[in-house]
Amino acid sequence: MTAALEIQGLRKSFGKLEVLRGIDLEVAEHEVVCLIGASGSGKSTLLRCINLLEPIDAGRVTVLGEEITARGVNVNRVRRRIGIVFQSFNLFPHMSVLRNVTLGPRKALGLSRAQAEEQATALLDRFGLAEKRDEYPDRLSGGQQQRVAIVRALAMEPALLLLDEVTSALDPELVAEVLDVIRELAAGGMTMVIATHEMGFARDVANRVCFLDAGQILEQGTPAEIFTAPREERTQQFLQRIVDAGRL
């Protein structure tokens, strides 16, 4: 079976700062991988490199058998198959919810307006957002906005979904509704790479957890291995800080 995602020797610097220092990671189809690690360890950069929002300095990224970091690859075509949801939602403020969700399918996939709206309406309905169809983003709660952002990514029917700390900008009482959506996606077999600070959630939902430290995957394993018996001292320290902060 081909891996959904395969990363080999990925390096990325911003100026003199080397943010990713040789990342190797393989994600099977239907697998859910959580990236944990301190702020600044490179989680967001890694996700942005995977869908080519950041140019990489060295290494290869392969999605469903196609090397997307090869020369001459059409980045727009690649991005259509890889969804990403950002910490800060990044909905389009000048468009209604429906237009936010249908923009990609219509303009990038070439669906007709009717097709795109029908599909969008079904998705919004599935995630309890049907009556928000015609609202503008600033009329929605943070949790609703983030769920719309997830629906917007799903409307492209991605083969791979990247989630970058999607609950970090939310009020605590709104976190659960968003995590429930992701759990449902995981149960439905969506292949996902999730950067998160929600350790309890990672333990529930992940097939595998990767601990990122200073731009390298220092340790990876099943949630049980990482959370109950971490081998690396840095992992232990990181988890201890999380426990001390009352987040595990």
Partner: peptide
Amino acid sequence: SQNAAGRSLGLTHGQSLRY
């Protein structure tokens, strides 16, 4: 980040500018 959101949907640079 608005451009990033547009481009991540597979819009071209021109489409992202326009829409």
